[in-house]
């Protein structure tokens, strides 16, 4: 059977028979549903899709997907994904991680898969807390956050996942929110279609240990003031009736009201395909409450993937040197022969 004759898969085809064990009301349910809804759009047969995760609430994700999957160890999903992708570049490989898994132990592994530009899709669920271990602060917890492990408030500067990704030379960087289901679905689709490492941060609500961490972006009234939807080629507008925008003042973005001599042509125009990552970086630095928070695709740049570069090297080596020959390899040293009759000949 060729792929063309395959019946189109549905969301149901991607639901495994395992009981989902996240807390009722967890943002993870929505991300799972959007993933299961989006995958049929890709036209990739189930057996060619693999989900790899590390440790944490989000990392239970692979168990619930009717695809191949591996629930590995803390922070190491990018490493496992790299090995798998090299063993079989045909596979569509997804890494599911969280702010704890991906940015604490996994910080090192994350930056290296990004700089290599493996053709793998990474989805980082950011709820700013360690949920599975019951509420300790994470690498993205806001400064001063009081948690079980920071009773007087955190004193360490949080990491901004998208800034980290850009600094690690990520070629696709995007952000969405668990409850923005249509937007999330579109972003996941874009991530899947990108050749190279796709890094998607999803703001996800932990309703047990950090409820409302993203309320300023999910509450219908508040989000009107605080959410900025990035669109390629369009000026940065937000606010009720798109009445506000972002203008550059030197290297600093500033919020402006449209009208009174300020028009859309004065605003910063989003270009996700710029080879230089500085503009995208600037967007990642826009944080609440000083700025509206952008969601959407920050950067999308097609460059050589690691597996293509490797395949290319192997091909060239084969062309230039021919297929490896074990006997030749064994004999690639100074040799001597001992004959039957008189020892050394």
């Amino acid at each position: 059977m060729t792929e063309a004759t395959l019946p189109k898969l549905t969301k149901k085809d991607f639901e495994s028979n395992q009981e989902v064990r996240w807390c009722p009301g967890c943002g993870d349910y929505s991300i799972l549903a959007q993933m299961q809804k989006t995958l049929p759009e890709l036209g990739i047969p189930r057996e060619k899709i693999v989900f790899i995760s590390g440790i944490g609430c989000s990392s239970r994700f692979p168990y619930y997907m009717e695809t191949y999957g591996m629930h590995s160890i803390h922070g190491r999903a990018p490493t496992v994904a790299t090995g798998l992708k090299l063993a079989n570049p045909e596979l569509s490989v997804w890494v599911i991680t969280g702010d704890g898994d991906g940015l604490s132990i996994g910080g090192n592994h994350l930056i290296h898969i990004l700089r290599r530009n493996m053709d793998v899709n990474i989805v980082l669920f950011n709820n700013q807390i360690y949920g599975l271990t019951k509420g300790q602060y994470s690498p993205t917890s806001r400064l001063g956050h009081k948690t079980k492990s920071s009773p007087l408030g955190t004193i360490d500067q949080p990491l901004n996942p998208l800034s980290v990704a850009l600094a690690a030379e990520a070629t696709f960087v995007a952000r969405s929110i668990d409850v923005e289901t249509r937007h999330l679905s579109e972003v996941l689709l874009r991530a899947a279609q990108h050749r190279g490492t796709s890094f998607v941060e999803v703001f996800q609500n932990c309703n047990i240990f950090n409820d409302g961490a993203w309320r300023h972006l999910t509450d219908p009234e508040q989000k009107k003031q605080n959410l900025l939807r990035l669109e390629h080629g369009k000026p940065l507008v937000f606010g009720p009736d798109n009445s506000k925008g972002i203008r550059l003042n030197g290297l600093t973005p500033e919020v402006v009201e449209l009208g009174n001599g300020v028009s859309e042509s004065d605003l910063l125009v989003h270009d996700e395909s710029r080879p230089d990552a500085s503009a995208a970086y600037l967007l990642t630095r826009m944080t609440y409450p000083a700025y509206p928070v952008p969601i959407g695709v920050f950067r999308c740049l097609e460059t050589l993937t690691y597996e293509d570069a490797l395949t290319g090297q192997l091909k060239q080596a084969l062309q230039e040197r021919g297929v490896g020959d074990l006997d030749k390899l064994f004999r690639s040293a100074d040799l001597w022969t001992v004959s039957e009759s008189n020892g050394k000949s």
């Binding site: 057996e47 997907m65 191949y68 629930h71």
Partner: peptide, 15 residues
């Protein structure tokens, strides 16, 4: 059983 094999989709993990 390795990924890419139709019908043998399965999940493995450390638990």
């Amino acid at each position: 059983a390795i990924p890419g094999t139709p019908g043998l989709e399965h999940r493995i993990g450390g638990l």
